[in-house]
């Protein structure tokens, strides 16, 4: 338990150090850099042309489809990791159970493939 706590103390300290690295760099920038704010500097950069209208564009829905697919397979990977460490001790049953799981998800992938989700049109 103490060991575990020591490990995550390091994560906390690492987070604080990383925060202060970025923070100190920004403070250094604040001290060293010139500041002459003019209106054209605050415009969105579009290769020299003045931006027209609102700057937010619409994004295609297929990005969300990939996000959903990612979610499925990432959760699967989380399930696979503990299995990968111990499956040899449990024996063939554990292996085939996980194969069933993978095959079911594989059918999901095949379905998405067949439906044309994976094709970027």
């Amino acid at each position: 338990m103490q060991e575990l706590l020591n490990n995550y103390v390091a994560v906390l300290v690492g987070g604080i150090i990383a925060f202060f690295l970025v923070f100190s760099a920004l403070i250094g920038n604040l001290i060293l850099s010139p500041r002459q704010s003019t209106r054209p500097k605050g415009l969105a950069y579009e290769c020299g042309m003045l931006p027209i209208g609102r700057n937010i564009t619409q994004v295609h829905v297929r990005y969300y489809l990939f996000a959903i697919l990612f979610l499925i397979f990432d959760v699967e990977a989380v399930f696979l990791f503990p299995w990968a460490v111990v499956f040899d001790d449990i024996g063939p049953v554990a292996f085939y159970e996980m194969m069933v799981f993978i095959v079911i998800l594989g059918f999901g992938l095949l379905y998405a493939w067949k439906k044309g989700v994976l094709r970027w049109r």
């Binding site: 250094g28 920038n29 060293l32 850099s33 500041r35 209106r39 500097k41 605050g42 700057n55």
Partner: peptide, 10 residues
């Protein structure tokens, strides 16, 4: 480090 830090108004 010595460059101006810009942020768009919007």
């Amino acid at each position: 480090v010595s460059k101006e830090d810009l942020r768009p108004h919007t």
